[in-house]
Protein backbone atom coordinates (compact mmCIF):
# COMPACT_ATOMS: atom_id res chain seq x y z
CA UNK A 1 0.00 0.00 0.00
CA UNK A 2 2.92 2.30 0.65
CA UNK A 3 3.70 2.39 -3.06
CA UNK A 4 0.11 3.25 -3.88
CA UNK A 5 0.08 6.05 -1.32
CA UNK A 6 3.22 7.58 -2.81
CA UNK A 7 1.78 7.25 -6.29
CA UNK A 8 -1.50 8.91 -5.36
CA UNK A 9 0.05 11.71 -3.32
CA UNK A 10 2.31 12.67 -6.22
CA UNK A 11 -0.69 13.12 -8.50
CA UNK A 12 -2.79 14.78 -5.83
CA UNK A 13 -0.10 17.43 -5.40
CA UNK A 14 -0.34 18.19 -9.10
CA UNK A 15 -4.11 18.64 -9.14
CA UNK A 16 -6.66 21.13 -7.79
CA UNK A 17 -9.30 20.34 -5.19
CA UNK A 18 -12.73 20.57 -6.84
CA UNK A 19 -13.19 17.01 -8.03
CA UNK A 20 -16.22 15.86 -10.05
CA UNK A 21 -14.98 12.33 -10.57
CA UNK A 22 -11.93 10.43 -9.45
CA UNK A 23 -10.74 6.90 -9.92
CA UNK A 24 -7.53 5.12 -9.05
CA UNK A 25 -6.96 1.44 -9.69
CA UNK A 26 -7.09 -1.19 -12.38
CA UNK A 27 -8.13 0.09 -15.78
CA UNK A 28 -9.87 -2.75 -17.55
CA UNK A 29 -12.72 -2.69 -20.03
CA UNK A 30 -15.38 -3.07 -17.34
CA UNK A 31 -14.01 -0.10 -15.40
CA UNK A 32 -13.71 2.00 -18.56
CA UNK A 33 -17.36 1.31 -19.38
CA UNK A 34 -18.53 1.93 -15.80
CA UNK A 35 -16.75 5.28 -15.53
CA UNK A 36 -18.15 6.19 -18.94
CA UNK A 37 -21.68 5.56 -17.65
CA UNK A 38 -20.93 7.75 -14.64
CA UNK A 39 -19.68 10.52 -16.93
CA UNK A 40 -22.91 10.36 -18.95
CA UNK A 41 -24.94 10.63 -15.77
CA UNK A 42 -23.01 13.48 -14.22
CA UNK A 43 -22.84 15.62 -17.35
CA UNK A 44 -26.23 14.72 -18.86
CA UNK A 45 -27.37 18.35 -18.72
CA UNK A 46 -24.22 19.65 -20.45
CA UNK A 47 -24.11 17.76 -23.77
CA UNK A 48 -21.38 19.89 -25.34
CA UNK A 49 -18.97 19.53 -22.45
CA UNK A 50 -19.90 15.87 -22.06
CA UNK A 51 -18.99 15.05 -25.66
CA UNK A 52 -15.54 16.57 -25.25
CA UNK A 53 -14.93 15.11 -21.79
CA UNK A 54 -16.08 11.67 -22.92
CA UNK A 55 -13.94 11.76 -26.05
CA UNK A 56 -10.86 12.83 -24.09
CA UNK A 57 -11.63 10.34 -21.30
CA UNK A 58 -11.85 7.41 -23.70
CA UNK A 59 -8.54 8.22 -25.37
CA UNK A 60 -6.78 8.70 -22.01
CA UNK A 61 -8.00 5.48 -20.40
CA UNK A 62 -7.41 3.44 -23.53
CA UNK A 63 -3.83 4.71 -23.55
CA UNK A 64 -3.43 3.64 -19.92
CA UNK A 65 -4.69 0.20 -20.91
CA UNK A 66 -2.26 0.03 -23.81
CA UNK A 67 0.90 1.48 -22.31
CA UNK A 68 0.92 1.59 -18.48
CA UNK A 69 3.89 -0.03 -16.78
CA UNK A 70 3.71 -1.50 -13.29
CA UNK A 71 6.41 -1.45 -10.57
CA UNK A 72 7.76 -4.87 -9.71
CA UNK A 73 7.91 -3.82 -6.06
CA UNK A 74 4.21 -2.96 -5.80
CA UNK A 75 1.30 -5.38 -5.77
CA UNK A 76 -0.80 -3.38 -8.22
CA UNK A 77 -3.06 -4.82 -10.88
CA UNK A 78 -1.98 -4.29 -14.47
CA UNK A 79 -2.73 -1.82 -15.88
CA UNK A 80 -3.25 0.65 -13.05
CA UNK A 81 -4.08 4.30 -13.59
CA UNK A 82 -5.69 7.38 -12.20
CA UNK A 83 -8.43 9.55 -13.71
CA UNK A 84 -9.66 12.85 -12.31
CA UNK A 85 -12.20 15.37 -13.54
CA UNK A 86 -12.07 18.69 -11.77
CA UNK A 87 -13.55 22.16 -11.87
CA UNK A 88 -11.16 24.91 -12.93
CA UNK A 89 -13.28 28.04 -13.30
CA UNK A 90 -14.39 28.32 -16.92
CA UNK A 91 -12.98 24.85 -17.65
CA UNK A 92 -13.50 21.24 -16.75
CA UNK A 93 -10.15 19.55 -16.57
CA UNK A 94 -9.64 15.85 -17.07
CA UNK A 95 -6.37 14.26 -16.01
CA UNK A 96 -4.94 10.80 -16.13
CA UNK A 97 -1.85 9.26 -14.60
CA UNK A 98 0.05 6.03 -14.93
CA UNK A 99 3.52 4.60 -14.66
CA UNK A 100 5.60 4.44 -17.79
CA UNK A 101 9.18 3.47 -18.64
CA UNK A 102 11.82 6.16 -18.20
CA UNK A 103 12.87 5.48 -21.79
CA UNK A 104 9.48 6.91 -22.84
CA UNK A 105 9.95 10.29 -21.11
CA UNK A 106 11.76 12.10 -23.90
CA UNK A 107 9.45 10.80 -26.61
CA UNK A 108 6.30 11.65 -24.65
CA UNK A 109 7.44 15.16 -23.83
CA UNK A 110 8.62 15.86 -27.36
CA UNK A 111 5.36 14.59 -28.82
CA UNK A 112 3.27 16.74 -26.48
CA UNK A 113 5.45 19.81 -27.07
CA UNK A 114 5.10 19.33 -30.82
CA UNK A 115 1.33 18.90 -30.63
CA UNK A 116 1.03 22.00 -28.42
CA UNK A 117 3.01 24.02 -30.99
CA UNK A 118 0.48 23.33 -33.75
CA UNK A 119 -2.54 25.41 -34.74
CA UNK A 120 -5.92 23.74 -35.19
CA UNK A 121 -5.44 23.50 -38.94
CA UNK A 122 -1.92 22.11 -38.49
CA UNK A 123 -3.24 19.53 -36.03
CA UNK A 124 -5.85 18.39 -38.56
CA UNK A 125 -3.19 18.09 -41.25
CA UNK A 126 -0.89 16.21 -38.85
CA UNK A 127 -3.66 13.75 -38.00
CA UNK A 128 -4.24 13.11 -41.68
CA UNK A 129 -0.52 12.39 -42.09
CA UNK A 130 -0.10 9.99 -39.19
CA UNK A 131 -3.35 8.10 -39.65
CA UNK A 132 -1.92 6.76 -42.92
CA UNK A 133 1.42 5.75 -41.42
CA UNK A 134 2.00 2.11 -40.52
CA UNK A 135 1.39 1.49 -36.83
CA UNK A 136 4.58 2.15 -34.85
CA UNK A 137 6.33 -0.80 -33.28
CA UNK A 138 4.99 -1.29 -29.77
CA UNK A 139 1.93 0.85 -30.47
CA UNK A 140 -1.44 -0.74 -29.76
CA UNK A 141 -3.73 2.12 -30.75
CA UNK A 142 -4.17 4.06 -33.94
CA UNK A 143 -1.32 6.41 -32.92
CA UNK A 144 -3.44 9.54 -33.15
CA UNK A 145 -4.96 9.63 -29.68
CA UNK A 146 -2.98 12.61 -28.41
CA UNK A 147 -3.74 14.56 -31.57
CA UNK A 148 -7.45 13.87 -31.21
CA UNK A 149 -7.28 14.97 -27.57
CA UNK A 150 -5.56 18.21 -28.59
CA UNK A 151 -8.24 18.83 -31.23
CA UNK A 152 -10.95 18.58 -28.57
CA UNK A 153 -9.07 20.53 -25.90
CA UNK A 154 -9.63 24.24 -25.28
CA UNK A 155 -6.14 24.83 -23.86
CA UNK A 156 -2.66 23.39 -24.41
CA UNK A 157 -2.08 19.89 -23.06
CA UNK A 158 -0.29 19.90 -19.70
CA UNK A 159 2.13 17.02 -19.38
CA UNK A 160 4.48 16.02 -16.60
CA UNK A 161 6.70 12.92 -16.74
CA UNK A 162 8.98 12.87 -13.68
CA UNK A 163 11.27 9.95 -12.96
CA UNK A 164 9.73 7.92 -10.15
CA UNK A 165 12.18 5.07 -9.62
CA UNK A 166 15.40 4.77 -11.63
CA UNK A 167 16.15 1.28 -10.38
CA UNK A 168 12.83 0.00 -11.68
CA UNK A 169 13.08 2.18 -14.82
CA UNK A 170 9.80 3.88 -13.97
CA UNK A 171 8.42 7.38 -14.51
CA UNK A 172 5.01 8.86 -13.78
CA UNK A 173 3.08 10.08 -16.79
CA UNK A 174 0.43 12.66 -15.98
CA UNK A 175 -1.54 14.58 -18.58
CA UNK A 176 -4.18 17.25 -17.97
CA UNK A 177 -6.66 18.39 -20.60
CA UNK A 178 -9.02 21.36 -20.27
CA UNK A 179 -12.35 21.82 -22.02
CA UNK A 180 -14.59 24.84 -21.71
CA UNK A 181 -17.75 24.35 -19.68
CA UNK A 182 -19.87 25.88 -22.42
CA UNK A 183 -18.29 23.70 -25.11
CA UNK A 184 -20.24 23.04 -28.30
Amino acid sequence: MQQANVFFSKFRDFLPDDVYLSYYGEIDNTIIASLGIELRRRFSNQPGAFRKLFGVYMELVQNIGFYAAIPKSASLPEPTGLVLITDEGEFFSISSGNFTRTSSIKKLQEKCDYINSLTMQELRKYRAEIVDRPTEEGSRGAGVGLVKIALMADAPLEVDVPVWNEVEDLALYCIKVKVKKESK
Partner: peptide, 13 residues
Protein backbone atom coordinates in the same frame (compact mmCIF):
# COMPACT_ATOMS: atom_id res chain seq x y z
CA UNK B 1 -22.19 8.16 -35.41
CA UNK B 2 -22.20 10.29 -32.27
CA UNK B 3 -18.83 9.09 -30.97
CA UNK B 4 -15.93 7.02 -32.25
CA UNK B 5 -12.45 6.50 -30.88
CA UNK B 6 -9.30 7.00 -32.93
CA UNK B 7 -9.00 3.31 -33.84
CA UNK B 8 -12.50 3.53 -35.28
CA UNK B 9 -11.56 6.78 -37.08
CA UNK B 10 -8.86 4.90 -38.94
CA UNK B 11 -11.25 2.05 -39.78
CA UNK B 12 -13.99 4.45 -40.93
CA UNK B 13 -11.44 6.06 -43.23
Amino acid sequence: LTYFNTSSYKAIL
